[in-house]
Design a protein around this nucleic acid. Structure first.
Lengths: 194, 194
DNA sequence: GTTAGCATGTAAGGAGTTACATGATTTT
DNA sequence: AAAATCATGTAACTCCTTACATGCTAAC
């Protein structure tokens, strides 16, 4: 079962899926990818790589092929076992918190999986969001007038944001089913109900 | 300077600002308030309360006044020092990550501060979001076509969401300046540029 | 009478950050 | 020549979660 800490593992396997890379570059790519907020520190990346080496998910590749005679960098490559693990982490159904925390990463690597898994991840996220939406809206109805102005405004904005994301997911699911990848632009147009 | 762990402290002080409460109730209110995602566990709440007691930010209040003869609950009340700390945490300018992590909590307690602080918090958040937006869009322009379909779609959606939040913040700032609290509905209307 | 919710706490462990340590290479 | 960036790592520390431990009260 997927644990909290498997996030870095998933991200590293996903990036290495595109080709060999060394630690420093992995960190840079990761920080661009997950640019919205948190950055990953070396203090967690390097130990994670060591752990993955021991688990035989990745292997070191000699850098001697580099023509420009740079300083020795440790380039990693994904093993067959690593690819298996990647597919497992991409598709596994775990606790809500884990799946929500890793949705973005999974999405970013959608090209490296098949449609079946993409649909499961998208639909899973949508149903979790809808469930929460229902709970929050029930709560809102129950406590109606007694909420603070600002707290209420925050709730309202939160609900609206989640509703948008649900519509976005619905568009993507439709596109996926219609077999034409993510829609390139129409997310702002009225798309009817979900 | 505000540390990462001051989040619970801020939230507890904010809730107690509305009146005395015991731990169990604090947790419930908090989990409703921050309903979008993570829940706070007893394992972090109770030790935090103990720590705040020692720091003299809150005090225990005897529950003997309760008429229904319930089991003894430990009801906490905020001290003058606690109120000072609350105002400090509400207004303090810290590292980006801290301010971003705590924006929602600060917003939810806006009624307990004055307009000066509300404006500073709202404008601070808006400028941080705009800065990130600029960075990401520059990055998007630089790497144009070479991005993966799904990774690109994720970026696009992220930019759109942040742009929405910037408009929301601008509405709130305008309302705050016009002295009429948060707008009750017009967030979906076109509001021009920021 | 037993399940569900109220109520408070502790201990162990996970995951990641910050700060430290080191040194090569490229740019200014 | 200095500053920035490339590049890899370790140690200490922080914050939080999970799991455990305990017992009362209300509802079914």
């Amino acid at each position: 079962m997927a644990r909290r800490g498997d996030t870095i593992e998933l991200a590293v396997l996903g990036l290495l899926h595109e080709g060999p890379m060394h630690g420093y570059e992995l960190r840079k790519r990761l920080n661009l990818m997950l640019g919205w907020g948190r950055v990953l520190s070396y203090g967690s990346l390097y130990p994670a790589l060591k752990k993955m080496l021991r688990a035989n998910l990745i292997t070191e590749v000699s850098t001697t092929t580099t023509p420009t005679s740079r300083r020795p960098r440790i380039v990693y490559e994904v093993t067959p076992a690593g690819n298996e693990q990647f597919q497992r982490l991409m598709s596994e159904v775990g606790p809500t918190a884990w799946e929500d925390d890793n949705f973005d990463i999974r999405f970013a690597f959608f090209s490296s999986t098949d449609m079946e898994i993409r649909l499961r991840v998208l639909e899973g996220r949508r149903s979790r969001l809808q469930e929460r939406l229902a709970r929050v809206q029930a709560e809102l109805a129950r406590t109606q007038a007694e909420v603070d102005r600002y707290a209420g405004e925050l709730q309202r904005h939160g609900v609206e944001s989640v509703e948008r994301e649900v519509r976005w997911l619905s568009d993507l699911i439709r596109a996926e089913r219609g077999d034409e990848g993510p829609a390139t632009a129409p997310a702002t147009k009225p798309v009817g109900t979900d």
